[in-house]
């Protein structure tokens, strides 16, 4: 498989490793689990047997690290629904930029045409 830099889609080892992290995040799809997470995050995370590194990344809301550890954005995005964090900030964190710089350098000026 050809390497495309910085695109974790092709990181199969990561995807396999991140299964529990993604499973924890997927569980946040229900209002009951969201309430349980908000009520006692540590107890909620205990249910999913995350390794130490992964657990720390979740607790710190370290998006870059969660993705590096095999988190898939579409699952871990459910964490951002709990502590509302804009997608732009998650993108910026992965690019290692401030949201302002990320917006300017990556997304660019708004243009439209029909």
């Amino acid at each position: 498989m050809p390497e495309i830099p910085d695109s974790p889609m092709f990181d199969r080892e990561g995807a396999i490793r991140g299964y529990r992290l993604n499973k924890m995040a997927m569980a946040l799809s229900t209002p009951e689990n969201r309430a349980a997470f908000l009520d006692d995050e540590a107890a909620f995370l205990d249910r999913f047997q995350l390794d130490v590194e992964t657990r720390e990344a979740v607790v710190n809301r370290d998006w870059q690290e969660m993705i590096r550890l095999g988190g898939n954005l579409f699952y871990i995005l459910k964490l951002s629904a709990i502590d509302p964090i804009p997608l732009l900030h998650i993108g910026a964190a992965q690019a290692g930029m401030s949201p302002e710089r990320f917006k300017r350098e990556r997304l660019g000026e708004k243009q439209w045409h029909t």
Binding site: D6, S7, L87, R106
Partner: peptide
């Protein structure tokens, strides 16, 4: 669009 990895924010107009 790319939402994941260091290339996040990639757009090809």
């Amino acid at each position: 669009h790319q939402l994941q990895g260091a290339r996040a924010g990639f757009i090809n107009r």
